[in-house]
Amino acid sequence: MKNLFIYSIVLFLSASCSSSTEEKAAAPEKATDENAVSLTEAQIKNAGIETGAIQSQNMNSVLKVNGVVDVPPQNIVSVSFPLGGYLKHTNLLPGMHVSRGEVIGTIEDQGLVQLQQDYLMAQARLHFLQQEYDRQKELSEQQVSAAKTFQQVQADFAAQKVLVKGFGEKLRLININPASLNENNISRSVPVYSPINGFVSKVNVNIGKFVNATDVLFELINPDDIHAALTVFEKDLSKIKVEQLVKVSFVDEPGKEYDCEVILVTRNVDVNRSGTIHCHFKTRPRNLLPGMFLNGSIHIENVPALTVPEEAVVRYGNKEYIVQATGENKFQLVAVETGIRENKRVAVSSTSTELSGMQVVTKNAYAVLGKMKNTAEEE
């Protein structure tokens, strides 16, 4: 009886193990890649899936960028007064137009009177030393006076000429002509003239303020070379060439565009991985001021690219993909970055996969993506 019981247990365990083994053998293997799927001929036909090769072609596009109105450093003029003094008068306001040679301010100071006085006194003494020099030279030639006396007068005369020359250059610094200065027109104030034709961008002083020689009174801008400085990302810089057409618009006139031409593309990239291109206005807008924000459209022509139809690109999550046909009705996703779009085709690129000549789904790619993800969820 005992032996019969043991034999029954052995048979039960053997049957259980056999059943477990058969269930494991019958269970299908789970897919290891959720980005790949196999379809039957019927599924491909019913879904209307078509394939084709990635094509290489030249494309035209419009690159949207932003920028500001800029002025080169040589067209920005800081006006100072070299000798210092009190600002007696000015009527400048930012934005006002000024002409070259126009009086834009008046400086007053007793030091200006002293400089003119010193010059005239030095000029008078120079006249006296000139006469003394001529007299001593004649006496020296006749050997009437000692050579030492002539040499002393000669040295004094040369030193006085240097002094007069120095005072004269100081007067020219403040726009006073030494040749026209005399005791009757000594002035305690002198005018400050505009050195350029342009407009005022900054006024840093007020009437009655004392200014030092290093202080900037006014900042003027010559608009002749005012231009658009546009910021372009690193990946697009190589597409832009000199003389390329650019259209810009301003925030206050979004519907009106102005034609520009690329004159310079910078050869360096900043910390934001972008560079600057400089563009001249073919027709300069009125009331154009440095620092104004603008939008730009750069027309890019004949850019070589690998392209697929727009419907060949699918989006899943936050990424874009194309569906590669790997053969035998098998498909897999390939992550790509899209670029230029033209005539219902889009440029694609990938840093991890060689795309040239690849066979991809060109129609109903989302049907393959849906089957792929549904199959992964079922498994």
Rank of each mutant, 00 (worst) to 15 (best):
Q142G: 07
Q123K: 12
L245H: 10
E234N: 05
V242Q: 09
D225W: 06
S297G: 00
I44P: 10
N206A: 12
S201A: 11
L171Y: 01
R125M: 15
T283M: 05
N175K: 13
I277G: 01
A25R: 12
K247S: 11
A213R: 14
V265E: 08
D156S: 11
E257H: 12
E138T: 13
V368Q: 01
P178D: 11
S238H: 09
D252W: 00
I196T: 08
T106S: 05
A159W: 06
K64W: 11
H89Q: 15
G168E: 03
Y7G: 13
L63P: 06
I240H: 02
I44L: 03
I6H: 09
V113Y: 10
A325K: 01
G275P: 01
V192E: 01
P309V: 06
C260I: 03
F81M: 03
I54H: 04
D118Y: 06
A155W: 00
E132A: 03
F281I: 09
L4H: 10
N295R: 15
E253R: 12
S38R: 12
N318G: 14
L369A: 01
N182H: 07
A47P: 04
Y119V: 02
F233Q: 13
I207L: 13
G85S: 04
S8W: 05
F331P: 06
I107E: 02
Q332N: 15
G166W: 00
G339Y: 10
E320V: 06
V265K: 11
L4G: 00
V98M: 04
Q142S: 15
F167D: 04
I277A: 01
D225S: 13
E328F: 10
E132T: 06
T353I: 15
I240E: 04
V164G: 04
R172I: 03
Q114E: 07
V162P: 00
I263Q: 14
F293A: 14
A365P: 10
A25G: 01
L139G: 04
G105E: 07
A146Y: 02
V153I: 13
C260S: 03
S140I: 00
I49K: 04
I226Q: 10
Q154Y: 11
L112Q: 06
V271E: 14
T283S: 14
G168D: 02
I340W: 08
N75S: 14
L129I: 04
G198L: 07
G85P: 12
G291M: 01
K373M: 11
V314K: 05
T353H: 15
E253P: 05
I104L: 03
F81R: 02
I76L: 13
K256Y: 10
F150P: 00
E219Q: 15
T214S: 15
V200R: 06
P304H: 03
H127A: 15
A53E: 15
G208H: 14
D252H: 13
T338G: 02
V313H: 12
